Simulated assay, not measured.
Amino acid sequence: MVGERLAIRVVKSNGQIEDFRPEKILRTLRRAGANRKLAEEIVKKIEASVYDGITTKEILRLVKDMISERQPPVAMRYDLKDAIMRLGPAGFNFENFVAELLQCYGYQTKLRSIVKGRCVQHEVDVIAEKTDGDFIRAMIECKYHNLPGGAVGLKDVMYTYARFLDLNEAAERGEGKWFDEVWLVSNTKASSDATKYAECRGIKLICWRYPRGCGLEKMIEREELYPVTVLRSVDRATLEKLSSAGIILVKQLLTSEPRQLARTGLGKKRLSALVSEAEQLLGKKNGVDRAVSRCAIV
């Protein structure tokens, strides 16, 4: 069992201070695929290493170092949040990632489309359409943060909803596309006001750990839709080459045709190493039940 909670405070990336909670590390390690014995062993070592005022970034580094020595694939999955931030610095790759993610959930997607609104034209990050059952067309705004501590705020959801209204007002006049749904997808958490407004206006808000049990991280983990940046050997230059060839998910390294892999411009030896790392990541998790209920949001 995890040891007794220490009277230690940690500093979060946004500057907030909270009590050290070892059970959070245990849950995240288990979700990443570590068996209970190993997860509890690492938590005990972390409890012995932390000090009052330690940052969450330092705790993350300690955990990753420990788990990397024992189970590298678990370390990669544990690093998911930072891996998504490494898609930046701009949001271009995050938009590509969201589009690929939704395709794996049965949507047809279009990136960065210019659509006429009643007042002005809008560039819609992702248009997602689903045709199984009732036809659905969604306007999707991607709100990407490349630094810890960022959050979706009230202004973000209000801005997204205003654009949605302007687009549909044009459609009502026969001048543009009609959108049945409006989504905002982000790689960070959302403020309480943002979630309240989204719920009130019927905006599908998908953020880190929101909605509860159906957040972005759950959508990724459920279908193993990890970004290539979760692979430890993918640096900035490699990411750019993979992205230029339309490869943004780890799965694509295993499913892409040789011609598409060749378009990356990476050498055979480098590609072989990446494929090997991808196979290691997507292998069977050690003793963890991966069954997760479907999210109504998608």
Rank of each mutant, 00 (worst) to 15 (best):
A32T: 05
M76A: 12
D52I: 10
K57M: 15
E47Q: 15
R61H: 15
V43M: 06
S49W: 15
K81Y: 10
R61Q: 15
D82I: 07
V43C: 04
L80M: 02
E41Q: 07
G88L: 06
P89F: 02
I46S: 03
S49T: 12
A32V: 03
R77P: 01
G33H: 05
E23D: 06
G91K: 15
I54L: 14
K81D: 04
P22A: 00
L29P: 02
Y51A: 13
E69F: 09
D79N: 10
G53K: 13
P73N: 04
S68A: 09
A34Y: 05
M85Q: 11
L38Y: 08
R61V: 13
V43K: 06
D65C: 11
S68Q: 09
P72R: 06
T56D: 10
I67A: 00
R86D: 05
K24L: 04
L26C: 05
G33K: 07
E69N: 09
V50M: 14
G53R: 13
T56P: 11
L26D: 02
D52E: 05
G53W: 11
A83E: 03
R61P: 07
I46T: 08
I46F: 02
K44F: 11
I59S: 07
N35K: 07
S49N: 13
L26T: 02
D65L: 14
T28P: 05
V74P: 01
K24C: 00
I42D: 02
D52M: 08
L38Q: 09
